[in-house]
Amino acid sequence: MRSYLPVPTRPTPRPGRSAASTRHIPFQTAMLAMPPIISVSNLSKTYGSGFKALNNVNLDIKRGEIFALLGPNGAGKTTLISIICGIANLSEGSVTVGGHDIVRDYRAARSLIGLVPQELHTDSFETVWATVSFSRGLFGKPKNPAHIEKILKDLSLWDKKDSKIITLSGGMKRRVMIAKALSHEPQILFLDEPTAGVDVELRKGMWEVVRTLQASGVTIILTTHYIEEAEEMADRIGVINKGEIILVEDKAGLMQKLGKKELKVHLQGRIDAIPASLATYNLELSDDGHAVIYDYDTKGDRTGITSLLNDLRNAGIRISDLDTRQSSLEDIFVSLVRQV
């Protein structure tokens, strides 16, 4: 994918750097120090049926970041997005977008936002060009064919611009929806489950688009229940469960804070049981008897690895290989959601 055009008010990323490496260039650091672009305060939502979808949510989104909202199905992710974007009414609390209250000053707030909903809602009989141009008009922007052309080219939709949407594949329709959301040059992009039902290649392409967008200064909030996606993309991660935000953390910090590591010691021969002399290590024997697995905490002063290796040798066990694995965000997530 080609680089995405920068939003005019933002400095252009330095040339010659990959999208991923532009994350820490100075202007973005400066943007992160600015007041939050979205501020959610004491937000609650109770549906007519009495179901409480959101319960006293407080959340700040920093300017220019990629924020992943992670949670199981029915946790309240889509409800939260719908309220911020104006599709659902809030019951209690308040939300500001770029400093504008979403109820009192809805025009200013909504102009800043592009929304790509989870479901593929499209006008089947419209052409790609017409539907994307319609979105731009709806947001009150003057016509700008060059901008629409750029978006369609960036999203590899240019050769489909005159096709009716009904003739497109699911992945293309998803990209049409992204193009619609970007048509009015938003500063914030909401992607609700952007890669649900999308194949691996297309998912990678989508991630690339998101990164180049961030490099051009757009703040991105994505919801997902694919942990891999949050792990790959996000600067910060919020975990929502049963309508409550249970954690917001830098991704790296989160991984480090809760991260456990696993050491797998491959053996030259096969053993039937863990020798009694190694009982204190709480080792696990692999199914085939050719490896032992040791869990340790990376934060601890002593990991116990050195003494384990010594004791293995003393027990007459010969080692053929070692590998370690960081626990994934998925492990962290599962343990978090279980705790609630």
Partner: peptide, 12 residues
């Protein structure tokens, strides 16, 4: 068809 989302989320 669900495209109403765009009308509701637009600054109008």
């Amino acid at each position: 068809v669900g495209t109403i989302y765009e009308i509701l989320s637009a600054p109008i």
